[in-house]
Amino acid sequence: MIGVPAAGAVTTALLVLAGLGVVAAAAFAVRRRVGGWGLETRVVAVAAGLSLAALPWIAWRFAEDLATTTRYDAYTRANAGPIQAYLPGYLADGARARIPPGATWAVAVGSSQANPVAQKAFPALVLITLFPRPSAPPGTASWIVGWGAPPASIVPVSRAVVVHPRQGPLPPVTVAKTRR
């Protein structure tokens, strides 16, 4: 679930208290039946009781998640994946405008101040942004998309163009046609 935060100390304490209350109520309700239960049934009942103690916490998770997801706007809903990876969903849109349909591409990702998860996810963002253009090994790709590394660092290219400027810790996105 995307919208569940870590519970604070007060919330945790309240959830634990509520859970103990649920277990106490359940134990009270079944107190007269326990005598007739076999060993397996008692073991399962203990497990069910312990799980009941988590019921308020589980309910709290759903409430927090719904409170978050029902507030999403259309952009966040459509780009939740890249956003979770610390990438704006529009970061590679400029590359799509420049790289013609049917062309192949490769990505050059260099070290930057961007989150490591973002650096790992950037090729996937380019993949879905440039769909259906397929990627290719740098040696055979006709275009290079650079992010934190100049396209010329992996193969000879013509003039590189910035298609998205630097944005906070995110380096600019550059695009260049390879020279053969």
Partner: peptide, 10 residues
């Protein structure tokens, strides 16, 4: 209300 967000999924 859940968007597509998990890493492997997107």
């Amino acid at each position: 209300f859940q968007p597509l967000w998990a890493y492997d999924a997107w």
